[in-house]
Design a binder for these strands. Sequence first.
DNA 1: GTCAAAATGACATGTATAGTGTCAATATGA
DNA 2: TCATATTGACACTATACATGTCATTTTGAC
Lengths: 153, 153
Amino acid sequence: MYSVNMKAEHLHQLIWMSRPLMQAAEACVEAGLIGTNLTVRMRAVLEMLNKYGAQTVPEIAARLEIKRQYVQIMCNETLASGFTEQRANPRHKRSPILALTDHGRTLIEEIISREMKLVEEIGGNLSKEDIATALEVVLAVTDSLKKRAGDRE
Amino acid sequence: MYSVNMKAEHLHQLIWMSRPLMQAAEACVEAGLIGTNLTVRMRAVLEMLNKYGAQTVPEIAARLEIKRQYVQIMCNETLASGFTEQRANPRHKRSPILALTDHGRTLIEEIISREMKLVEEIGGNLSKEDIATALEVVLAVTDSLKKRAGDRE
DNA sequence: GTCAAAATGACATGTATAGTGTCAATATGA
DNA sequence: TCATATTGACACTATACATGTCATTTTGAC
């Protein structure tokens, strides 16, 4: 049937649009960081701290799904630049809690607010139903792909 | 309004699902390449040759939107592995046309066919309308983001 | 036909974003 | 208390590109 092939073809296209989409999104984020002394990976740390509160490096790594050794480097950069500071961790003396400084908080909130404004502009032409549908499809597809990637006979 | 925020939030989520989606898709492709002597980047070359016919390295690079110097390396690997061969190029004597060998063609067609079957399985639960909607949204969003990335005051 | 400009392959080097492995110090929990 | 786990720090590796350069054609404008 023609429609069956169209469906698979659209899905195929959708899956492989993920790369251009990601690249375009990252380029936007990067462009928005010009002028600040933030890098994209430092921004990711600040975003986690802003969204989920002060936390340890391994916690941030778990949320970002990146190995803690690399996240450690990212976090150290935010410390060196004064966007974050260490606080005593009552639960673990060797693993201090990373917290936003006032400077860091102000900056990340402004950046996220600007990004959100951009997202709203982009969503201008699109209906909220279509966006919700798109998100559901993408979530379902990602989930399916993740399940299939592991088990190969 | 609540719904306005939900819309932006869904769109935000959709945009940032692009990375997990891409990673999951690439993991699947990689898993499907086990046993063949193909790498992901060699697969990309064969796919272009299969889809658009025999062509030169710079042409492949343009289609993949990757610098020709890197594509040259990818193509040389496919040559070394016997998946492709060089043919005289009447239009340019220094730039031979890269063509699939029988072996290469058989292999890439089988791989793509298996991948398409997987896509169809994944699409099983989803309606063709929703998939079409998702693709339209993603295309529109990518387009918007690409336009915004460049022009910053 | 000539000649400057562009295209091409080859090679060397650089960079961003991670993954992997290891170690010592310390913390935790049975 | 003591085996086990966690953490920070550091070194090394890997992937997927980008960048720059060079010599060799090739092309196109005149």
